[in-house]
Amino acid sequence: TTYKLILNGKTLKGETTTEAVDAETAERVFKEYAKKNGVDGEWTYDDATKTFTSTE
């Protein structure tokens, strides 16, 4: 399943996707990605669109 991440950081904005077996796995991948890029925001998830959003 393809999951999408929308980053709305103070210094980094953008989108990326990952293939994962479930939302929990995708969330771990995306949170590590955000951390590596210095984004520490509030997380939301929309199951209908398989989209995570992190907003600082």
Rank of each mutant, 00 (worst) to 15 (best):
K13L: 08
E24G: 09
K31I: 08
A48N: 12
E32C: 09
V21Q: 13
T18E: 04
D40R: 10
T25H: 13
T2E: 08
T49M: 06
T55K: 07
T1Y: 14
E42F: 13
T55R: 07
R28T: 07
W43N: 01
W43M: 07
K4G: 03
T53C: 07
V21F: 13
E42Y: 13
F30G: 00
T2F: 09
G14C: 15
K13I: 10
Y45C: 01
S54P: 03
F30I: 00
T17A: 06
K35W: 11
T18G: 03
W43I: 05
E56I: 07
T51S: 04
D47Y: 08
K35L: 13
W43D: 00
A26P: 00
I6T: 04
K13T: 11
E42S: 11
T51L: 03
A23V: 13
T2P: 04
K35F: 12
A34V: 06
Y33W: 13
D47N: 09
K31F: 06
F30S: 00
V29P: 00
T51P: 00
D40N: 14
D40S: 11
G14Q: 14
L12R: 08
Y3S: 02
F52I: 00
G41W: 15
A20N: 02
K13G: 05
N37P: 01
L5P: 02
K31C: 06
D22A: 03
A26K: 00
T25D: 08
Y3H: 02
T53S: 07
L12P: 04
T25K: 05
F52L: 00
K50Q: 09
Y3R: 02
A26I: 01
K13F: 11
T25E: 14
R28A: 12
T2A: 06
A26C: 01
E56C: 08
G14N: 11
L7Q: 01
D47W: 08
T44S: 13
D40G: 08
N8M: 12
N8T: 08
N37C: 15
A48W: 07
F52A: 00
D47K: 09
T18D: 02
L5T: 01
N8P: 03
T53F: 10
T49W: 03
R28M: 10
T18L: 14
T16D: 03
L5A: 03
S54H: 08
K4W: 11
T11A: 11
K10G: 07
G41A: 05
F30K: 00
T11N: 14
G9S: 08
G41V: 05
E32D: 10
E56T: 07
D22L: 04
F52D: 00
F30T: 00
E24Y: 10
D47H: 11
D46A: 04
T17F: 14
G14K: 14
K13H: 11
T51Q: 03
D40P: 05
E27Q: 11
K50L: 07
E19F: 15
Y33Q: 02
E42K: 11
A48R: 11
L5C: 12
E27I: 08
L12Q: 08
W43A: 01
L5H: 02
K31Y: 06
Y45Q: 01
L7C: 07
D47C: 08
K10M: 13
E56P: 06
R28K: 12
K50R: 12
V29D: 04
G9E: 03
F52M: 01
T51C: 04
T49C: 04
E24D: 11
T11P: 03
E32G: 05
A23I: 12
T49R: 06
L12E: 06
K36Q: 13
G41M: 05
K31E: 03
K13P: 04
A20C: 09
V21M: 12
S54L: 15
A34T: 06
N8A: 09
K13C: 14
L12Y: 15
G38D: 06
D47G: 08
Y33D: 01
T1W: 12
K35M: 12
E27W: 15
G9K: 03
R28G: 06
E15I: 13
K10F: 14
K31S: 04
G41N: 03
V29I: 14
K50H: 11
G14H: 14
A20R: 02
E19C: 15
A23C: 14
D46K: 02
S54R: 04
K13D: 05
G14M: 15
T2V: 14
D22K: 03
S54T: 15
T16E: 05
L12A: 09
Y45V: 00
T53H: 06
T16Q: 08
T49A: 06
T51M: 03
A48L: 11
T18F: 14
V29G: 03
Y45F: 06
L12C: 15
N37F: 15
V39P: 02
T44H: 11
E19Y: 15
T55Q: 07
V21P: 15
G38S: 05
D22T: 05
V39Y: 12
G9R: 04
D22R: 03
T49H: 05
E32N: 07
Y33F: 11
E56Q: 08
K10T: 11
T44F: 10
E32I: 09
T11I: 11
G38Y: 04
E24Q: 12
E56G: 05
F52E: 00
T55P: 03
N8W: 13
T2W: 13
Y3V: 02
T25C: 07
E19P: 04
T44Q: 09
A20W: 02
S54F: 15
D40V: 13
G14D: 12
E19A: 08
G38T: 03
T44M: 09
V29Y: 15
A26V: 02
E42G: 06
D47I: 10
A48Q: 11
G41K: 02
E42N: 11
L12D: 05
Y45G: 00
W43F: 09
G38V: 03
G38H: 07
K50A: 04
G38K: 06
N8I: 14
V39Q: 04
A34I: 05
G41S: 05
T17W: 14
Y45D: 00
I6A: 03
E56M: 07
R28D: 05
T55F: 09
K36H: 09
R28Y: 07
D47Q: 10
T53V: 08
K35V: 09
D22E: 04
K4Y: 14
S54N: 11
Y33R: 02
T11W: 14
Y3C: 03
D40Q: 12
T55E: 06
K36E: 11
L12F: 15
G41L: 08
K36R: 13
K31H: 08
K10S: 10
E56R: 04
T51R: 02
E32P: 01
A34Y: 02
D47M: 09
V39H: 10
T17G: 03
E24K: 13
T49D: 04
Y33E: 02
T25P: 00
K4F: 13
D46R: 03
T25F: 07
K36T: 10
L5W: 05
G38F: 06
E27G: 08
E24I: 12
L7M: 10
A26S: 01
T2D: 03
T11V: 11
F30Y: 01
E42R: 10
Y3F: 11
K13V: 11
W43G: 00
Y3I: 02
I6H: 04
V39G: 03
Y33G: 00
D40T: 11
I6W: 04
T55M: 07
V39E: 04
A20H: 03
K35R: 13
K31N: 04
E24R: 11
L5Q: 02
T18S: 04
R28F: 08
K50C: 05
E32L: 10
K13Y: 13
T51E: 03
Y45K: 01
N37W: 15
K4R: 13
A48M: 11
T18Y: 14
T49F: 04
K36M: 13
Y33C: 04
T18W: 09
E56K: 05
T44I: 08
A26T: 00
L12H: 14
R28Q: 10
K36Y: 09
T2I: 14
D47S: 12
G14R: 14
N37R: 13
E24V: 11
K35G: 05
K35E: 09
T17H: 09
N8S: 09
T25L: 05
